[in-house]
Design a protein around this nucleic acid. Structure first.
Length: 272
DNA sequence: CAGCATGTTTGAAG
DNA sequence: GCTTCAAACATGCT
């Protein structure tokens, strides 16, 4: 479930589990998941140890004991990590596995094969080439404002665009817009300074809240829109009860914006 | 079976 | 160059 908060949790997980253990072996089930050819990946990683991490938006970079060997991970729509003892069965969908000399393995879980792993030699070069913007937790109000005002489009797709700010995905953008009380289809050029400030604060609120709850959306505060969304892992006694705005009770409306399913409160989020 | 899905890239058209 | 829209990627779940 990898938007920025999940990837941050994965980063912490990898950092806590997988550093300073020489990589003995690497198994790749499907070469399509690689952005670096397997022989090169193997040769560069064999014998190396992970030494640290850096996350930018939804991208996770893992440093090794060789400065120019940096692993890049992108978790697509359903990626995950699993660190497990070698004596245990390989987790389901662990299509790439790092075998450490510690007798533990790190599995890169990718059920839908939208995930990617490869090498980069320099993080900033990679970010620049991919035009990835400032991380959602590092961006300043003036940077975010400048980015948004440089575009002429609907606010939702602009916030989803990783060039604007890195790390926001479909569901988090809906939450940000809800918290900021901005309609997903309002055009960027019509946003007031007050709305831009509200969006900035909402980005921080939503990201920090999600990370604090270890990215388990179901534990979000009661006044978050996320509860109106259907989550297969969040069983509610009364499914209808959560289809109303947690602030005003108006039925949550669903529409398509920028080609993505969008939830919003037609009463709280009006185009100014 | 049909429809939908947390992401990114690419290409066409205006 | 920019925006918009659709499709493609590959698979799982409801």
């Amino acid at each position: 479930m990898p938007e920025l908060p999940e990837v941050e949790i994965y980063r912490q997980y990898l950092e806590a589990s997988s550093l300073h253990q020489p990589i003995e072996h690497l198994d790749v089930e499907d070469p399509k998941l690689l952005t670096t050819d397997f022989p090169i990946l193997y040769e560069k990683l064999a014998g190396r140890s992970f030494t640290g991490t850096r996350r930018v938006g939804k991208n996770l970079f893992v440093f090794t004991d060789k400065p120019d060997v940096i692993l890049h991970m992108h978790f697509g729509m359903t990626g995950d990590l699993a660190y497990y003892h070698a004596s245990l069965d390989r987790p389901r969908y662990a299509r790439i596995v790092f075998y450490f000399s510690s007798s533990y393995n790190l599995g890169f879980i990718c059920p839908r094969k939208f995930e990617r792993i490869g090498l980069v030699d320099d993080v900033d070069t990679y970010l620049k080439r991919k035009k990835i913007g400032r991380d959602g937790l590092d961006v300043s109000l003036s940077e975010l404002t400048a980015q948004i005002q440089s575009r002429d489009a609907l606010i939702k797709p602009v916030l989803m665009d990783q060039r604007t700010v890195a790390g926001l995905g479909n569901w988090i953008v809906d939450e940000v817009l809800f918290q900021a009380r901005v309609h997903p289809e309002q055009r960027t050029r019509t946003l007031t300074d007050g709305q831009l400030a509200a969006l900035y604060e909402a980005v921080r609120l939503v990201l920090l809240t999600a990370i604090r709850h270890e990215a388990s959306y179901r534990r979000f505060p009661a006044d978050f829109l996320i509860h109106a969304r259907r989550w297969d892992d969040s069983p509610y006694e009364d499914p209808e009860a959560h289809n109303y705005c947690p602030r005003c009770g108006t039925p949550i409306r669903k529409l398509e914006v920028g080609g993505r399913t969008t939830y919003f409160c037609p009463s709280c989020q009006r185009i100014e």
